[in-house]
Nucleic acid binder design. Structure first.
Length: 578
RNA sequence: GCCAAAGUAGCUCAGUGGUAGAGCAGCUCCCUCGUAAUGAGCAGGUCGUGAGUCCGAUUCUCACCUUUGGCUCCA
């Protein structure tokens, strides 16, 4: 048996054991569902009162007792009526029984005092579970069937493994995630802040964070120019006419900031940049000779995200998309898609993301645009992905109503997936705005329009980068690349001299002339995760050299200034991690 | 928006029905030091906001705001 199947069985069985334990404490509890999930399991309950930390300990102890009592998991197949009789006091189970398709058999699993409606499979006996290889993690609210109109249940999350060692590894992994939390690092490294009193979900970039953002944006612009894009700038607000035409006021209004009234007109802050880029397109009549238009903008947009959805930099209300729109002829479409994908991968690789997975989403049932276009676009997406040799999954029918898309997800340093790039066809806006170009044959035709963002949003991308590197940015991104640390006051002038030279040579440098001890300065620089420290004392002054302490603790003594400069420049140039 | 927890000094946190404390950071002084914290002193808080109970509320109650973990949605 595959390990993943075995773990799923263990976790699913754990969920049943947990349900039994909960029922021991709350005999009248209504039980909902309890599946295995990635890394663990959960079970949803409708309970007479809110669970506390103490309850979790109590449940844990009871679970251990159940596991150690060697109860068999016994499967039985019953009729619907029999099942309904068994669960006559369990309204959620009754609903589930009714939702089982006709013809599918209804099975129960029983262990000890607990019987659950369940497809299985399960381990043979509770003794196949390890009482020291699970942990209940948290209680959270969850709607019955994920529907916010239905009752809110209490969900207990747990993690379960084959043995205590695996559990330990997983708990260490959770601790690692916590250590890398971009909100924590953002504070520690003085990169950004959010201010509840000034508006939730709005980001303030501090000098050190802004430095990194600047490096990202400069690189982004340079690459875009090199790859045939032009930059545009567009306004932050637009009259309601624009959003009515685009359809946003019809489909997207709930996610937009409310209107501002001026001169009897409603103005909306933009939740997307597309209508503005379309205005530029429409400013003049386009010939096939003008296409493709590749227009990019670091466009700051505002969206009303539900309060509960806000999360650090990952989910905010104001953010900057690294947006671009491509207006292309049908002939150009395929090559352009291949090119966009190649470009995306190049960008992601540059930032140190090398494990990339593609997800193609195809035509949903309700859609606009004719089938031929959908097919051509979808084929182009597949071709592009295959050409790059990317692993990909297809989400059949998972596209937006207005066009198919590719999403790229990267894996970070600790194996978590993040969606960054997205390439999205749009058959809707060209129609709504009546976009055309004059083809060779003199006939006006509709161009293909492609939205794409490579990094997604700068805020979110920054958050992902921060967690990926755990704050220890590679030299090319580090807000401060060199910290100069004089051993004692006598070396301060020499420190200033070296700082001036480095700054002049384009190296981001700070020097610490405070009257702390050298050790304290090193500690400070180390905590700020500055990649290079130059320790300058009488020896260096005398010889006109520098001594380097690298972020990883290694040291090099007596380097000439030029040798050090060459070394750091090479690192920056290569974008390597130190 | 819903469920739960939380909000005390710039940060991390302790604490109490009789208007608060630590460490770090900050400031001052001392130290001038060779690879992760020299030492001493000072200053810093209307205890998230508003109401209620009470002789008295940071502490108890309620409402609101915000944050966190989830649900939903997504970049």
């Amino acid at each position: 048996m595959e390990k993943s199947e075995k773990l799923a069985m263990i976790r699913h069985s754990m969920a049943h054991v947990m349900a039994e334990a909960v029922l021991e404490i709350f005999p009248d509890a209504q039980i909902a569902i309890g599946p295995s999930i990635e890394n663990g399991f959960y079970y949803d309950f409708d309970l007479p009162r809110t669970l506390t930390e103490a309850d979790l300990l109590d449940i844990t102890e009871r679970m251990k007792a159940i596991i150690n009592s060697d109860r068999k998991f016994v499967r039985s197949v019953v009729s619907r009526d029999e099942a309904k009789e068994v669960f006559k006091n369990q309204k959620y189970k009754l609903e589930l029984i009714d939702s089982i398709p006709e013809g599918e058999e209804v099975s129960l699993y029983n262990q000890g005092a607990f019987t659950d409606l369940c497809r299985g499979p399960h381990v043979e006996s509770t003794k196949d579970l390890n009482a020291d290889a699970f942990k209940l993690l948290s209680v959270a609210g969850a709607y019955w069937r994920g529907d916010e109109k239905r009752p809110m249940l209490q969900r207990i999350y747990g993690t379960a493994w084959e043995n205590p060692k695996e559990l330990r590894l997983y708990l260490d992994h959770l601790a690692d995630i916590e250590k890398r939390d971009h909100r924590k690092l953002g504070k520690e490294l003085d990169l950004f802040s959010l201010h509840e009193e000034a508006g939730p979900g709005l980001v303030y970039w501090h000098p050190r964070g802004a430095r990194i953002r600047q490096v990202i944006e400069d690189f982004w612009r340079k690459e875009h120019y090199e790859n045939g894009y032009e930059m545009v700038y567009t306004p932050h607000v637009g009259k309601s006419w624009l959003w009515e035409t685009s359809g946003h006021l019809g489909f997207y209004k709930d996610s937009m900031y409310p209107p501002m009234e001026m001169d009897n007109m409603d103005y909306y802050t933009k939740p997307m940049n597309c209508p503005f880029h379309i205005m530029i397109y429409q400013n003049s009549k386009k010939s096939y000779r003008d296409l493709p238009c590749r227009w990019a903008e670091l466009g700051t947009v505002y969206r009303y995200e539900k309060a509960g959805a806000l999360h650090g930099l990952m989910r905010v209300r104001g953010f900057t998309q690294d947006d671009a729109h491509l207006f292309v002829t049908p002939d150009q479409m395929e090559d352009e898609i291949i090119e966009v994908l190649r470009f995306s991968l190049h960008m992601l690789h540059s930032f140190g993301f090398n494990e990339i997975h593609a997800y193609i989403s195809t035509k949903p049932e309700k859609s606009v645009g004719d089938v031929e276009k959908w097919n051509a676009a979808t084929e182009a997406l597949k071709k592009a992905v295959e050409k790059e040799g990317l692993k990909y999954d297809i989400d059949e029918g998972g596209g937006a109503f207005y066009g198919p898309k590719i999403d790229l997800k990267i894996k970070d340093a600790i194996g978590r997936e993040w969606q960054l790039s997205t390439v999205q066809f749009d058959f809707n806006l060209p129609e709504r705005f009546g976009l055309t170009f004059v083809d060779k044959d003199g006939v006006e035709k509709q161009p293909y329009m492609i939205h794409r963002a490579l990094l997604g949003s700068i805020e979110r991308f920054f958050g992902v980068l921060l967690e990926h590197y755990a704050g220890a940015f590679p030299p090319w991104l580090a807000p401060e690349q060199v910290a100069i640390i004089p051993v004692a006051e006598v070396a301060n002038d020499y420190a200033k001299e070296i700082e001036r030279k480095l700054r002049k040579d384009g190296i981001r440098t700070v020097s610490d002339l405070s009257n702390e001890r050298m050790n304290a300065k090193i500690r400070k620089a180390q905590q700020m995760k500055i990649p290079y420290m130059l320790i300058l004392g009488e020896k260096e002054m005398g010889a006109g050299t520098v001594s380097v302490r690298y972020r990883n603790g290694k040291q090099a003594f007596g380097l000439s200034y030029d040798a050090f400069l060459a070394e750091i420049k090479a690192k920056i140039e290569s974008k390597e991690q130190l």
